[in-house]
Design a protein around this nucleic acid. Sequence first.
DNA 1: TCGATATTTAGATAATAATCTAAATACAAA
DNA 2: TTTGTATTTAGATTATTATCTAAATATCGA
Lengths: 91, 91
Amino acid sequence: MDKLFKALNDPTRRAILEQLRGKEMSAGDIAGCFTVSKPTISHHLDLLKQAGLILAEKRGQFIIYSLNTSVLEECFAWLLKMTEKKKGSAL
Amino acid sequence: MDKLFKALNDPTRRAILEQLRGKEMSAGDIAGCFTVSKPTISHHLDLLKQAGLILAEKRGQFIIYSLNTSVLEECFAWLLKMTEKKKGSAL
DNA sequence: TCGATATTTAGATAATAATCTAAATACAAA
DNA sequence: TTTGTATTTAGATTATTATCTAAATATCGA
């Protein structure tokens, strides 16, 4: 949960996730969408991978990244809990 | 959006939001639930307020905080977009 | 094998963020 | 109006994070 919220906290990382929506991309393709350096993108990809939000697959000299939204369920569940009325509460 | 994700990134702040579920609490009440100092809690409350996640109302010498989950809609919407299948995509 | 490409790792730096203590402010009650 | 309680603000410190350049690693193609 901690890693998930941490991963989602950065605007560049959220933008990476949005880029990955509906298509796979190599690390270089992803880096090409942003102005920050490739090592920086590589670092963001690492954090996203640690959070389980993306999957990495090596294909030849490329590393292909794809989105994994299943881990967002945990985030959804927490948000849902927060928005639901608590039992026995007036609020 | 940025402030929202930032506010949700810290475990103490998420715990504060959970405490506030179903009941209003003074700043002191909230601080009493945690081991960190009162100024630290005050700072967390400020960030939560900036994100619109809590409301503050002064009552006499107390400041009463309450949850405002409506801003979480934005977060929900983003997560939903991410989990939805993109139009014209194979994934 | 050698040179080019793709990506990461290492190491450094600068910006943010969490936390603390001490002091300031606001209010209440005596 | 003085004392005590509630809370925040100021200022400093430490930890974390984002970012960069340079170097290392891995793979491809000639």
